[in-house]
Simulated scan of single mutants.
Amino acid sequence: MSSLGASQAAAGASSADPIRVMVVDDALVIRGMLSRMLEEAGDISVVASAGDGERALAQLKRNPVEVVVLDIEMPNMDGIEALPKIVSEHPNTQVVMASTLTKRNAEISLKAMELGAADYVTKPGSTGELRSADEFKRELVEKVRSLGKAARRRAGRLAPKSTTFRADPSRPTAAVPLQAKGREIVLRPLKPFRPDALAIGSSTGGPQALMRVLKDLGEVRQPIFITQHMPPTFTTILAEHIGRSTGRKCVEGATGMAVESGGIYLAPGERHMLIRSSGGRTVIELTEDPPENFCRPAVDPMLRSLSAVYGAKLLVTILTGMGSDGVKGGKVCIDAGAQVLAQDEATSVVWGMPGAAAAAGICGAVLPLEKIGQEIRRFAVDGGRP
């Protein structure tokens, strides 16, 4: 079947049908384990599997799916070689990379996301990461489920809920994305101010979004604090990628590290990153407190700590990601007088975190990715003047 025929076949199915998945891994035992975990979710069906990228591509022509779980290291054609072909030939299909947790595979996984993969999972028992099979299963199922829905929207099988964004009459609405009537999200007034710090939270699709926002933002004097849901090693590599991409120093936060003007600080994997005032200095503190929203690092604790230090002089941005991390912390920030921006549904890989923030009524603007960096800069440099 051609890719066009595959798309038509996929479009003919009901959006209530189980999400169709292909598992690609050279190890038969791993394919079996992943397939069982996904099938047990009830709303996911593993309809195909393959031992290498070449066989996966051949199967995709005959058996269209919405999500491919793709191993990196395989014989004949590995995952990084197969990925661009999948993305090109099956543009509505979402790809989740699966790998062991090593520095090399972290590099490859981030490269894969630049090439079109939507997300990644690290296999249980990976070196350097102690995680249970239950934790891995929850993560795998949630990502496949969310990305399956995103694939259906791409294919036109599951239309985004129509949304009206209603702004306070006291603020300009030119930047507000207005859609057809349906659910209504009320935007808070965006008042002119120049923040002393910038905060960004992200998850699924976040690395790509972060690169775009930080490039568009350019040089600013304010420190930037980022929590991206990622395991150790991956956050180390992400910090390096951000530094190379932006030409600015980006580091993983460390306990006792002094916050400097213009610095970019990324929460390290398996640690919550908090910001404290100490002896007249602003410093970073890492904790191993329990996960919040099933995540460590999590956005909420970072935002609560930033609110305590910066109060009304904080600008928060919530980018693409699953779940609702950032909403509770964002409410704390709003109550202290800070302001919140969010990425819109059309440009988000998954409109979970930004959608939850918008629905909670804490956002001053909901914008496409290509406008977010410019909007942050408008406040950071120009004080929010039009």
Rank of each mutant, 00 (worst) to 15 (best):
V283T: 07
A359G: 03
E81D: 14
A267D: 03
R271H: 13
T255S: 14
R377L: 11
G205A: 07
A151K: 03
G201V: 00
G156S: 12
R31T: 14
M22T: 04
G269F: 00
R55M: 10
Y120A: 02
S35A: 15
T204E: 05
V121S: 11
G32W: 09
Q179V: 12
V220W: 13
R62V: 09
R385A: 15
A56L: 05
D216I: 10
H272C: 02
S162Y: 07
Y120L: 14
S245D: 13
A356R: 01
R183V: 15
A180E: 11
V47I: 09
L190I: 09
R20W: 02
P124M: 02
E40Y: 13
M97G: 02
A50R: 04
E219F: 10
E370F: 14
V213M: 08
G323E: 00
G329M: 00
S202L: 09
P189F: 13
A336E: 06
L130D: 10
D26A: 14
E89P: 04
G53W: 01
I242S: 03
E252D: 10
C333G: 06
I108W: 09
A6P: 03
A6C: 15
S324K: 03
Q228H: 11
F225N: 00
A336Y: 02
F234R: 08
I200E: 01
L369W: 11
R271C: 03
A167R: 12
L34E: 02
V350I: 15
D78G: 08
T102Q: 12
L70F: 14
I318K: 03
S146G: 13
P268C: 01
A346Y: 15
S307L: 05
G337D: 07
G247C: 08
L266D: 03
E142Q: 11
L217Q: 00
G12Q: 10
R212E: 13
E40R: 14
H272R: 05
R188M: 15
K123E: 00
G311L: 04
A11M: 11
V366Q: 00
A50Q: 06
V141E: 01
A6E: 14
E270H: 15
M257V: 05
M77K: 13
P368V: 03
A267R: 04
A167V: 09
E270W: 04
D52K: 15
R378E: 05
G205N: 07
L286E: 04
V213W: 06
R385G: 07
G79P: 00
G269Q: 06
M353T: 01
A112L: 08
P232F: 10
S348E: 05
P75V: 14
G361F: 12
G330N: 09
A308W: 08
L28C: 10
L28V: 15
A174H: 15
G373D: 12
F294K: 08
A239D: 06
M1Q: 14
K137D: 09
F136M: 11
L286K: 06
Y310W: 06
P172N: 11
R55Q: 14
G280V: 02
A365G: 08
